[in-house]
């Protein structure tokens, strides 16, 4: 039903949806509710031979139930053959401030890619 983004938006981007543990300056500090079950991030392997991919999150009292809830919630349509659950607060993420510098180094290092080597173009099996 969402032809525009079916493949592009497949959540292959890891646990970036984990809630901000540190209150960013603009968070309106919502009224806290009663402490409920902790939040877990769910990773699903869709088939043998493939990686586990972040599917979403859920609440569960412990790891045992988190796995079962993940099975019930995220594999109702044969999405998976294996599941990982990770407590959301156990995920360490790269610093959002560092988007510029942390990931700058690989930019411009074309020689890491096959396309850099143009003289061998047209040579078979290379």
């Amino acid at each position: 039903m969402c032809p525009a983004e079916n493949s592009a938006a497949a959540p292959a981007d890891g646990p970036t949806d984990a809630p901000v543990s540190r209150d960013s300056g603009t968070t309106p500090a919502p009224a806290a509710g009663a402490p409920g079950w902790p939040l877990w991030e769910v990773f699903v392997r869709s088939n043998r031979g493939l990686s586990h991919v972040h599917a979403g999150s859920l609440h569960a009292p412990d790891a045992t139930m988190a796995l079962r809830n993940a099975r019930d919630l995220y594999t109702r349509r044969n999405e998976g053959v294996s599941i990982w659950v990770v407590p959301s607060d156990a995920i360490a993420a790269s610093d959002p401030d560092a988007k510029g510098s942390f990931f700058e180094s690989p930019q411009g290092k074309d020689y890491r890619h096959a396309t850099y080597y143009t003289k061998s173009e047209g040579v078979k099996h290379l």
Partner: peptide, 12 residues
């Protein structure tokens, strides 16, 4: 692994 997806659905 580029086929890895958490939303690929099949009827089984």
């Amino acid at each position: 692994d580029s086929a890895a997806s958490a939303t690929r659905i099949t009827p089984g």
